[in-house]
Design a protein around this nucleic acid. Sequence first.
DNA 1: CGAACTGTTGAGTCTAGTCAATACCCGTGG
DNA 2: CCACGGGTATTGACTAGACTCAACAGTTCG
Lengths: 239, 239
Amino acid sequence: MPTIPPHEDEPRTCRLCSVRSNGICRVLDTSQLARLARHTRSTRHEAGAEVFGDETDITTYANVVSGVIKLMKVLEDGRQQVVGLKFANDFIGRIHAASNALSAEATSEVELCLVPRALMEAMLEENRPLERWLMKETLRELDEAREWMVTLGRKSAAERVASFLYLIALHVNPELGSDTATVEYDLPLTRSDMADFLGLSIETVSRQLTELRRLEIIVIHNKRHVHIPDTERLRQRAG
Amino acid sequence: MPTIPPHEDEPRTCRLCSVRSNGICRVLDTSQLARLARHTRSTRHEAGAEVFGDETDITTYANVVSGVIKLMKVLEDGRQQVVGLKFANDFIGRIHAASNALSAEATSEVELCLVPRALMEAMLEENRPLERWLMKETLRELDEAREWMVTLGRKSAAERVASFLYLIALHVNPELGSDTATVEYDLPLTRSDMADFLGLSIETVSRQLTELRRLEIIVIHNKRHVHIPDTERLRQRAG
DNA sequence: CGAACTGTTGAGTCTAGTCAATACCCGTGG
DNA sequence: CCACGGGTATTGACTAGACTCAACAGTTCG
């Protein structure tokens, strides 16, 4: 278990990103990193906590340090759809908008680094690589959203669940596909969250997981820990 | 039928956008408009024609002058999903990427204005308002994609079809919702395209249209022309 | 007129949803 | 220690909504 240093007010280099990350800090110069360190604030949220509300004004942006956050849209009658997941080093926030019509909730314990809106916008103004980095991030989000539209619109329940497990596997090991790779991880979402992401009912998600287990495509321990002996088989099931 | 002026090589002000548009030309300075006029090329495509292929390299960007284009993703087994629609004044192209894993097809007769990749990137480099405009466009696309994810993941067939009709109505008259407004338009998509957009079968789309007609929420002439006497009723049916 | 294409309608099937019961996992407190 | 309660997950029985297959209607074009 990692120890969490408390937030310190002295300026120092950025704690936002891990060393090997492609996160935001990669494109900041030293002066900006120093400013960032002075003005950012780190927060923690436990699983299930709301991070940003549906209609709250956006006064800060955030960088995910650890944990997973789900972005949700909710209909009047209560139906809800997860429209995106944010992992470590992902950036959260809607530039150029007063509100986002989206709520963000922690699905596991989450550590965030909050960046004041004014600071972020000032840095964007003076740092073009940062602006370009943000553009690329936004395009990646768009690609992900469109990829998921195919899953929601055209795939069966079996394929959806497999797609989700493969998606997480790819996050754990981005270099999949080369060999018959083995992956193992803890699911960052409850069955209910998975259902909301996949556009299914919890019962269907559960049944499909059982079926995947029966086919020995996955092994599950303690409801949450997933072992995938052959990711290629899983990928094929994902459609 | 409009006459199509052949492309002219003399520099002149931009023909890309209509006067009242929020399109790309709004953020270009006069020198750039002149350069654009020299290097753009206009093309037409008939309904059903492929505009950009799935894996073709991106050598040009494009501005939609008139007509509608669908962006599609296709699975190996042939299932396909429309992940976006492009209308007049919309910009098409994936900045910072070699390929887009997306195909674009005209759904009605389409007039495009092609912008060479190098020119676009040069202008982006020297014109920050343009860069910011593109960022906003991308964010709008992301919002639209996420909105549609809710439709695909959580809405019934009846709600999906109503959502689609309302979406088009909003495009025809962006100031809807104020009063009990009446809207009338020609559907820019075939039943098959609608099905691919909505994640439904053509038969289900057809049945839902029949049902909407029976409820007198819409009136259809010649299969394609839709009249909506009370857009509020339609919106309610859209969930 | 027939062919090709698009759209509508009907009948039967099947997938995924709903409702309900039960199992499992933990933490609390007797 | 075990009993109890609350939350989460699984499983079963039944149902409803959308899909498939198939027939047919309406248009356009040669």
